[in-house]
Design a protein around this nucleic acid. Sequence first.
DNA 1: GTTTAGCACTCGAAAGAAAAGAGTGCTAAA
DNA 2: TTTAGCACTCTTTTCTTTCGAGTGCTAAAC
Lengths: 345, 345
Amino acid sequence: MELSERKKQILKAVVEHYIDSAEPVGSKLLAQELGVSSATVRNEFAELCDLGYLEQPHTSAGRVPSPQGYRLYVNELMEHRSVSAEEAEGIDETLRSKLMGGAITNAGQLVSSIVHYPAYSVTAGNAGLTVERFELIPVDATGFITVVMTDDKNVKSQLQSSALQFDAERLSDLKNLLNTHFTHKSRAEMSEHLMSVSDQLPPELFLVLSKTVEYAAGILDAASRRDVVTTGASEILKMPEYRDVDKAHELMTFLADNKEQLPVPEGDGPVQILIGPENVDHALRDTSVVVASYDIGDGMRGLIGVVGPTRMDYATVTARLSYFAESLTKMFGKGLPPGQIEDNT
Amino acid sequence: MELSERKKQILKAVVEHYIDSAEPVGSKLLAQELGVSSATVRNEFAELCDLGYLEQPHTSAGRVPSPQGYRLYVNELMEHRSVSAEEAEGIDETLRSKLMGGAITNAGQLVSSIVHYPAYSVTAGNAGLTVERFELIPVDATGFITVVMTDDKNVKSQLQSSALQFDAERLSDLKNLLNTHFTHKSRAEMSEHLMSVSDQLPPELFLVLSKTVEYAAGILDAASRRDVVTTGASEILKMPEYRDVDKAHELMTFLADNKEQLPVPEGDGPVQILIGPENVDHALRDTSVVVASYDIGDGMRGLIGVVGPTRMDYATVTARLSYFAESLTKMFGKGLPPGQIEDNT
DNA sequence: GTTTAGCACTCGAAAGAAAAGAGTGCTAAA
DNA sequence: TTTAGCACTCTTTTCTTTCGAGTGCTAAAC
């Protein structure tokens, strides 16, 4: 059953008042606002309660939106705001100054400072990554530099030393071996192949080879790992719902220790909203999460989320977060050279 | 004036009781413990108050150690505990499992989980670092890999592209140019030299050169930066002194936003303790900080600190922290290959 | 001279009582 | 269908009271 126009109006008003006061909203206030009597509003309240859109903390308190109420608000009632010029300027400025050659993992921190809720940032793991090319550069008698380029054109390198003497020729042989047999292979295939050549090589050489391969495997591992970074947890202490230290503590330790369980929706829309009990995780039962994804390039996506009480300022958060995500995407799209966006190499 | 033996004993007892109860300690309790009457203890209390070692929150409460009292306790009275076998095992285990190829910046997190106070970790900035060697590896017509080895034998690399065509010879020329004029130079010298050659080179070549030099300069910058990472801030919410949300909030935002101001003592001893007002920073006025430094190798030192209320369990924290720092030093000393201890390359 | 028993006193914390106030639900009239 | 009116419910706030731990001081005991 579709709600009457007035019921929607009332629900909207309740949600918005509650969002910025954190106090149950009573009939008198809305009566004034709608130009009807408080009794009328009360009747509507009662019905909205029956329908499950509102709740009352106790008999003689005002009404509070239920999760279902928030859901309706977010889906239909909320005015989709876009960021104001000043906000946009502020966000751009933040991005410019803080992300300059800086780690993508800091994205969460920036968002948190923009929306004033805790935020998290998920670096998309690239599981299918392989090595495109090995390069070995002699340094001295027993050491050389290993350079590994992955097929997303990232380059990592390390100094490697071995007991074995390596002249240029030998190094070149090793390099060829690596490039012919260990490129464009998955982690598992690399290990497998390493095993298979273990008895065809002199043991010292094999040792060096395996060290190099392990280094490369480590790079692939690191790239496939989905890293979650949370920031701004202390923001929640400003909110009345977390005046209760125990509640605050619960959420904060969750954000610190169980961040891997923060929602990572398989996205369709640009911004997704999870309200209270819609979160699978029990610890997030009375928080809401707003998540946006952005394009890193190479078809890969990063994810940023905002966590807050169900009484979250959805309109503002959604607007800022999606603007932020768009800006990030644009930034990457503009084709910054990989060396500059590459995270902390 | 030297305190009498009994006064010391009483002070010690007050500190230790207060450390684990967070309640002012009364004369009755100590009377029982020392085998004297409560009146005697009260007399001693009064004198210790006059001398500034104890304080009373209000007339009819027990006594609480003053910062000066803690100081005396830490300097003379505290039994310097060493970690138990189980603790040592636990710490070693933590180190082994979590630091495997892992970031040194996580040291703080480990310490925090070991001592149950917020912790911070400072990566020692190496300001005098220079580039030891450049290496350029051709990839395709317009791109090459830049490899930079610094004089601490760390190697970083990046893919660089340019509008200019680079054949092997030209690349080799560029490499020689870099290695002859831009190695073993400070950041400033590099920039300076770059300026001075700007008109002696064809502009396109100069562009590529400067990109490369800037990349190297960025690496030196990053290495010289003193990074501070804080973790475990939520630990404070367990402590009675931070049941007050506003206090907790103050400290937490300080740990999140002003971590650069956390004390970085120019160390002499292995572990340093700063008690309450001994901290210069106002926000740390009623917290204590315990800091230890560890050897990274190359003569460089890292720093880990623990932050907590003045009523901190100094004996345990000191013991665990110094054991942790020693273990870290040993780990580095054992000569793990640079590639493994190198932070997130 | 130091220690101890005794006792009146202080002050915060906890418990209880009372008042205030916001908001409701229901009924009956407009 | 809306509204005014009114009794009722609960929380919040405030004020008092009580309770008790702990003190400081004095005078006696060791």
